[in-house]
Design a protein around this nucleic acid. Sequence first.
DNA 1: TATTGTTATACTCTATAACTATA
DNA 2: TATAGTTATAGAGTATAACAATA
Lengths: 158, 158
Amino acid sequence: MPRTKSRQLIPVDGLAQLSFLIHGLLERRVAEHDLSMIQTRLLGVLRDRRPTMQELAQLLSLDKSSVTGLVDRAEGRGLVVRIPSEADRRVVRVGLTGVGRALASDVASQFEGDVAIVLGRLPRTDRAALAKVVSRLLVADADARGVDLFATLDETAP
Amino acid sequence: MPRTKSRQLIPVDGLAQLSFLIHGLLERRVAEHDLSMIQTRLLGVLRDRRPTMQELAQLLSLDKSSVTGLVDRAEGRGLVVRIPSEADRRVVRVGLTGVGRALASDVASQFEGDVAIVLGRLPRTDRAALAKVVSRLLVADADARGVDLFATLDETAP
DNA sequence: TATTGTTATACTCTATAACTATA
DNA sequence: TATAGTTATAGAGTATAACAATA
């Protein structure tokens, strides 16, 4: 008897589908710029940071050796630069080039447009309701994990 | 002045973040079973089909040569089997083994639990609102692309 | 000839282990 | 000795092009 009702109250499938829809939107969009998801995340992370290779590994949840290759390829395309640290000559910092920053901006605004189109198919009141609940959900999740919500913003939405 | 308001009405960032949250949940969960996302999708697609290699390529949006390798590795792990077609001896169909089916079920139910935990942090009324709006969004999107919603269910929620 | 699937090849992405340079 | 980063190596995942078997 409570079958239909509980499906509505715990919309696991719907949420999963929605997440794959949005993720796929980004994947297809960045592919047009010959970017993989991880290269896109790299650019996103660098928009407001100049991390060391070590820090980059933590930010992207990768091994430091994986970051070496990742940055190699991005640098080869002229999207990022390695900046030797003066304080500690073992350390290398990574920053966006102008080209890299422009590409990151392009991708971000195009992706926002893609998501806006999908959202635009909903009536205004539904969009408002969605915004409210999604923001509550994100806050509740960040709370539950003791995480600063804004610290992860640009990693997830490059 | 309408800045805050329009952010709420077009929750692009929030939706993107949410989608990465859910996607990451699945990624971490399947990694515990030594599954990549594409291997997980393969198992998901096979839960109610025995497609040819060609059909598999279309279902997963991969080149047929990529599917050869994908199926090779899954078959090597005993998760799927190649079944020679009797009608056309060029054709190979792919199906789940018992082990593959059990793994797919495990992963699906664990992932549902993960999503349910996140949703459980919302008050009941918010969950109901989210369920309603998300389902409308998915229907609207499927409509807009002239796609049968249920045909893609198990690809996105393995 | 056309189609199905595999193979050969090349590149990205990833990790582990060993290495170099610096601290 | 310990740390930061790279290199060597191996394997998954992907695509393009060439191929074999079948239709």
